[in-house]
Simulated assay, not measured.
Amino acid sequence: MPHPSPSPAGVRVERVVTAGTVPRAHGDLTLENNTWVVGDDDECVVIDAGHDGRAIVKAIARGRRVKAVLVTHGHFDHIDAVGEVCDGTRAPAYLHPADRFLWDDHYPVTPDEDLADGATLTVGDVELTVLHTPGHTPGSCCFHAPALAAVFTGDTLFPGGPGATRNDHSDFATIIDSIRDRLFTLPPDTIVLPGHGDSTVISREAPQLQEWVDRGW
């Protein structure tokens, strides 16, 4: 599995895999989610706190300041541990406002901060740039870290294709546009770190785009 190298000043990426059950009308679904912790020995950000907040907080070394809990999109399995992680670390939660309708189904309080396309957040010596990549949900975002040659894609891009667009708030043509225009324009050696499963590399996925368009998913 490709993995980003630490930055010169020591910012590194750690993966915490959590598992949980997502309730669905036609039967509950058990999912494993990737939570990404990005930072150095002093501070970090958490990307997509899913299922088990206690395990995520435990994985963050004692004494590290959590600057933010970033949400790639508002689906239940990516936000259901945000409250617990924020409570345990006193970190603010960031969400794109177009996904507030999903957040509001789960939380009675508003997120602390809005994500906006092109905004940047700095952790250690590494800058994360917000890329608004709608399609899986209206407010889906990815986080690009050029210094780590990595992009955190949530459920927008996986090895072998885009995230699912089966819901009434998702759209296949839109997610294809987001992948083509926002992700496949990144450097070819950029490592893709998704919300579930293994990582990949932009250069491995980009040649498959027309195949995905032709198959329709």
Rank of each mutant, 00 (worst) to 15 (best):
P138A: 03
D42H: 14
F101H: 11
V201F: 05
V213Q: 11
D42W: 13
A59K: 11
V201S: 04
H75F: 09
E14I: 14
P162Q: 04
G39A: 09
L115T: 03
G160Q: 08
H75N: 06
H75W: 07
A49W: 03
Y94R: 10
H144Y: 15
T89M: 05
L29M: 07
C141I: 13
D48N: 15
V57F: 06
V109Y: 14
V16T: 13
T165I: 04
C44T: 09
T153D: 04
D181E: 15
V16N: 08
P108V: 14
L157G: 02
R215K: 09
I60H: 01
H132S: 12
L115G: 01
D87S: 13
A147E: 15
L193Y: 02
P146F: 06
G124P: 01
P97D: 10
A19W: 06
W212G: 02
T200I: 08
H106W: 09
G39R: 06
P138D: 04
T122Y: 00
G161D: 13
V37E: 07
T156C: 10
G88D: 07
S203R: 15
L102K: 13
S7A: 14
D105C: 13
V66H: 03
D168E: 12
D77N: 13
G216L: 00
H73M: 04
R204K: 11
T200L: 05
H132W: 14
G74F: 04
L115A: 05
V126E: 12
T129R: 15
V45R: 01
G39D: 10
T137W: 00
R54S: 04
S170Q: 09
P159K: 11
L102I: 04
F184D: 08
D112L: 05
T89F: 12
T174C: 14
N34Q: 05
L148C: 08
R54Y: 06
A145P: 01
V38T: 08
V16C: 12
D28M: 12
K67Q: 12
G27S: 03
D40Q: 07
T200A: 10
G88N: 06
E43W: 04
G163N: 09
L193G: 01
F158I: 10
E43C: 13
V192S: 01
A150P: 00
P111W: 09
G197F: 08
K67E: 10
D40Y: 10
V192H: 09
D77G: 03
K67D: 11
P108M: 07
H51V: 07
P188M: 06
C142N: 03
R62M: 08
P92L: 03
G135M: 01
L31K: 15
R62K: 08
R65E: 13
G124A: 03
I191H: 06
T156Q: 02
V69Y: 00
G195L: 05
D28S: 10
L148R: 06
R12D: 12
